[in-house]
Structure formats: structure tokens, C-alpha cells
Design a protein around this nucleic acid. Structure first.
Lengths: 343, 343
DNA sequence: CACCGCGATGGTAGCGCTACCACATTCATT
DNA sequence: AATGAATGTGGTAGCGCTACCATCGCGGTG
């Protein structure tokens, strides 16, 4: 008597209940045309055997896909992307879709492989934070009718829906606030212009300066900081100029924190603004302007765009790609009153 | 002429290449007994049609499961769990397994549903951060031979592998350091004792006090803070006692930050230690001891335990449950020198 | 020249499930 | 009483794929 190793099938249930597999199938699908008595017998057998319907077989038979949404992000350890994932999961879950995860670590090769594998698993759709600028592996010629939504970065040379943060508007608004608080020579700590967010946030910064009639001093611009430490070094460098900036706009939280450290260490008191809110922004003890937004909302919107495409009639003509921009809000911590640092 | 809506099948490829479906299947599986000429013809057809093997059908036929690992966490927005997910994804990915995500928001009902759904999708295994203390839905009687590994919280009344953080050891060591730096009346800002981490970290705190010959003043203990704001209030309350504590051990980062705020606001200077490292621990400008550990390692170990179970011969006897404890390290920020806050 | 062996290919069946049709039974209608 | 419809149940086929066996053609052997 070998204990059954593989899970019971619908046939096993049918045998035990003394009915045909079809009847079991109907009971499980809540088909109306089943006698109450039969239903009870079947359910008893299901219970006794611990039967669970095999969704894989079911989906195959129904010609459906997997009921999965592939989510490909560049770095799940980054709270931005994990919150995005949370938003995707919430909306997909409402429709009974599950989310399959892929982490690329910004590696374009890995991204290609993941997209291929997800397609082979017949996911219903893909949400991708593309690592590179080459999106050829996401074209409909490669993926057939598999819907794709890009998140956080816009499509390049392909037609696809996308959801973006208002990088430009947020940077512009925060810089404007900095200027309103008296800054006349702001510096910029940012990302390489090759990154979408890098160039958009810099553009917002520049436009705000322009609108205030200020001119940008190129010596105040540093763009290659990827860690808090290098950001701190860059800020210190700029601060040690004979005529240092009186403010910084930082393109992400790593730069903001680096600048914060540099300011704490140096004697000067430039004003500080930065993209990305963070949990401890208000306890840093220095006045601070941050550009806040909701990464979870980004995920939710991306999922909604994807569901829209998934629900479309397969025969219907492709609708034009849509682009959703998530708004940002500017938050000021301790700007009016004196800084909270104790003397 | 309707454009083909559904993706091409192996049959389509066979027809186009002028061979039988079997031959195509063999080519795709790198079966050795195929002529080079035939292989080329088939691959050309595959390319022309943009064919991709349907892994769902393949797995069904092979009697395999889905090639998926279900990951059920309580809150993906918490960096702890997202890093855990990253570790799971890395190890599972090495074996060609993908990770399906489920977020419970600490809701036991949702957890049960997610586990059921994952089982129905025939995941190869589950990694669960259980929301509650009732783990009856994770027993092998309910899930059959589906392997389950618990993460961050131990199994209760079920036999399952698990991976834990050394909550006790970390709390004890950090508290000991606090005492070594001169604390004699430390307070405790923590979690409800009903939470595993809450009671373990409190136990570590108590043992360290004991070992130093100190006695705990119950008035210094607060346990119901779930946000930075409530933690701050609790710390302020304790600090306003006539004989306030000269140090705090905080059971998680929210409590640490609340205490930090309270200390900044009040005139006193209690020493501060807390569980969980965070990115800005060293820029807070107050000396600080933190208990650090690697959540990603937790995920990696959990995935390894799971793979071990998955790889076991289905007929083999169950091996006893294993428990892995992830070590913690204690980090001191600015403890030796004077605090970095500028006067 | 029959024979064997082997390598390349094809046919059949079935993984677990359900759409579709067939059938038997019951009940209302003329 | 005969007809039709509505109802409960079962049989068959097939989703896309591959394990298994059958087949076919080839060269080498006695």
C-alpha cells in the first residue's frame, strides 16, 4: 500500500463519490444543473481526499493563459520598486491574477531572459521597469499579443503603455520653492543624463531657474554620484569652492543624504531640496524640501493599464499607447521655523 | 484572413517545417537523435512563426508542477520583506524557479486564501511569513506533500522548516553594549509580547540586564507602539518620569526613530540602541547602537531549505524540520567620540 | 543476399481538466 | 395520451505537449 504521492485528481473524487468526472467538474464550477444530493456527495469526497483543482490543467483546457502577471523590476531591495510591486499585487489580486517576480539588477541580459521565460509561461501580461534604452525585446513582433506596460521609464522606439512619475514637474516645483526661500545660486546633485529620471529632473531644475531669471553655474553641478558617500564627497567639493552655492537640489534620496552629511560637516548652511521623500526626513534636524509621490500608486496604475489591455477583445484593433503621469507633491520639513537641531 | 490571435503551437511549427510534431518537440528539447538538416529546418520555422514553447502544457504533460515558488509575506512595502523576497528570487532563479508573490497585510484570512490559491496552482513550494499564530492551514494534512518553509517567525504546532533572525541574541548583545557604555537604568520600547519578535527581543533585553546584575524598572517599558509618532510619545512619557531611564533599547526601527525624536526634543541625553539597521543611522547625529542583519540572507536560506525539500525523493521519509538562525551583528555609530551634531 | 542493428522519424496515448453533444428522466402543455 | 421542453448526468474529444513504441531506411556482417 503505497501512500498516494501525487495529489488526487478529479477522477479520484468521481470514483469515490460514485459519479462521473464531469459531474465533479460541474460541482466544482458551481454549475447550476446539479442535484443538491449529488453536490453534497461530491463535496464530501473532495473533503475526504483533500482534493484541490489543478489550475494548470484547467487553464490549459480553457485556452486561457496562466493567470499570472509578470513583474520585472531592476532592484527589488529599493523601496521604490517594492512599493510598486505592492501596488501591482493589489490591483492584479482583485482580478484573481497573481504576480510573478523577476529582478534584473539593472542587467539587460537578465531582463531579456526573464521576459522570454515569462512569455513561455504564458503570463497574461508584463509590467517592466526597463533596465536599458533598447526595448526591442518588448516589441509586439517578439511577444505577439502579450500586453506590456512600462513603469517608471518611458518606452523608446516601441509602442507600449507606460506610467511615469512627474520627474520634471516635481524637480521644477521643489527648485522653485528653494528659490522662493531665498536661494539665488543653487547647485545640483544628480544622476547621469543617460538615465531618464536624471535628465528629466535636471530639466525641471533648469526650467525653475530660468523662470526665476537665475542662471545656472555649471561648477555647481555634479552628476555621477551613485552612493551616499560619493554624493557627500561631491557636495563637499562644491561647497569648498570660493563662492559656494547657497542651496542644493538633489535628484534622489542618496544625493540628498550625501548633501545632508556634507552640510552637517561643513560650516555653511545651504538650503536643501531633494527628490524622494523618506521616512526620517523630518528628524534630520535640518530644514528640507522633498518631492514626494506614491510608488504604490504607480504600481496600481500600471496594473490598471495592463488589465485594460488584457480585457480587450483579442480581435480588436490596437488602441494607441497611453501614458500616465503620477503627480508629485512638495513637502517642506522645518522650513519656516529654526532648524530642530539642539544647540 | 484573420491574423492568428493565439500564439503558434508546436503543430504549426511542424506543419511549416514539413515534419511531425514529435520531431519539433525533439529539436526543442535538444534531443540528440535529430539530423542537423532537420534541426535547422525546424529552427527556421520556429523563428519565422515566433514560436515559444508553452511551458504550462509541457509541465502538465511531464507531471511536473508549475516551476513556481509561492512567497507569502505580510507587508512587501517593508524593506525587510522586500529584501527577503530578493534573496528568495535569487536562489530560486538559479534553479529556474520563479517566485509568485502574495501580500497578506497581516490578514490571516488573506493568508489562508493565498496559500490555497498557490496550492491550486501547483507551486513547487511555499515560503510563508505567517501573520498569525494559527498555522493549521499549513499542515501537511491540508497541503499534501507541498513543502513549506516559514520565514522570520517560527512554526507553532506544525512541523515545518524555518529561518529566523537571532532576535534574542541581537537584543541581548546590543543591550549589553548599552550597559558597557555606562547605562544602568535602561528602558525598553518594544512590540506586543504576542509577536514572536516582540517577546524574543524583550527576552534578550532582560537577560542582558540580568547578566549585568541590573534589575528592570517596569515603568520604563512600553510595548504598544506601531508608528514613529506613538513611539515618540511613549519615549517622551518615560523620559518625563522623575527618575528617567539613562538609555533605551528599541525593539525595531520605528521605535528607535520615535525615541530619537523624543530625545532630540527633550533636554536629556539617554543612550540609544535599537533592532534593525537603517540607511541613515549614521547621519542622525546622535550616538546609536543598532542590531544589523541581512534580510536577503534570510530569503536565501529559506529558499535553500525549500529547494532541499523539493529535491527530496517523493517516496523518501520526511526528514525532521530544520531551523536556521540568521546571525546579527551589533554596529555602533558615533559611540566613542562626541556626537556629530554641530553646536 | 538475407539479416541484424542502429539512428532518424512518426503515430498513439494521455497529463487533468472542461466544452460540447447525447441521452435519460421528469414535468408542463395541447 | 402524445409532444415538447427543461433538467440531471455521462461520453467523447482535445487544450499543447512529450513518453513510449513502431516504423523505416541505412550500412555492415556472415
Amino acid at each position: 500500500m503505497s501512500a498516494e504521492q501525487s495529489p488526487p485528481t478529479l477522477r479520484d473524487v468521481a470514483a469515490r463519490a460514485g459519479v462521473s468526472p464531469m459531474t465533479v467538474s460541474r460541482v466544482l464550477r458551481d454549475h447550476p444543473r446539479v442535484t443538491e444530493r449529488t453536490r453534497e456527495r461530491v463535496l464530501a469526497a473532495v473533503d475526504a481526499l483533500g482534493y484541490r483543482r489543478n489550475e494548470l490543467a484547467r487553464n490549459l483546457r480553457l485556452g486561457r493563459t496562466s493567470g499570472l502577471v509578470g513583474l520585472v523590476v531592476t532592484n527589488l531591495a529599493n523601496p521604490f520598486y517594492s512599493q510598486l510591486a505592492l501596488g501591482v499585487e493589489a490591483i492584479a489580486g482583485e482580478r484573481g491574477l497573481k504576480v510573478v517576480l523577476g529582478n534584473t539588477a539593472e542587467d539587460v541580459q537578465r531582463e531579456r531572459r526573464l521576459v522570454e521565460e515569462f512569455a513561455a509561461r504564458r503570463v497574461d501580461g508584463l509590467i517592466v521597469v526597463p533596465a536599458g534604452a533598447d526595448h526591442s525585446h518588448l516589441t509586439s513582433s517578439r511577444l505577439g499579443r502579450l500586453p506590456v506596460v512600462l513603469a517608471a521609464r518611458p518606452p523608446s522606439n516601441i509602442a507600449a503603455d507606460c506610467v511615469l512619475v512627474d520627474d520634471f514637474g516635481g524637480a521644477r516645483e521643489a527648485t522653485a520653492r528653494l528659490i522662493a526661500h531665498g536661494a539665488i545660486r543653487p547647485g545640483f546633485l544628480g544622476l547621469p543624463l543617460s538615465a531618464w529620471t536624471g535628465s528629466e529632473r535636471f530639466r525641471g531644475f533648469c526650467v525653475a531657474l530660468d523662470e526665476a531669471g537665475l542662471t545656472l553655474d555649471e561648477r555647481y553641478v555634479r552628476r555621477n554620484q551613485r552612493t551616499i558617500a560619493t554624493a557627500e564627497a561631491a557636495a563637499l567639493q562644491v561647497l569648498s569652492l570660493p563662492d559656494p552655492p547657497d542651496a542644493f537640489f538633489c535628484a534622489n534620496s542618496r544625493n540628498t543624504l550625501g548633501a545632508f552629511r556634507a552640510i552637517s560637516a561643513s560650516g555653511s548652511r545651504p538650503a536643501l531640496a531633494g527628490f524622494d521623500d523618506f521616512e526620517m526626513a523630518d528628524v534630520l534636524g535640518l530644514p528640507l524640501i522633498v518631492v514626494a509621490y506614491d510608488p504604490e500608486e504607480l504600481g496600481r496604475q500600471a496594473a490598471r493599464l495592463l488589465l485594460d489591455r488584457i480585457d480587450r477583445e483579442p480581435g480588436a484593433a490596437d488602441s494607441p499607447p497611453r501614458r500616465i503621469v503620477i503627480p508629485t507633491t512638495v513637502v517642506e520639513y522645518g522650513m519656516a521655523e529654526q532648524p530642530a537641531v539642539r544647540g
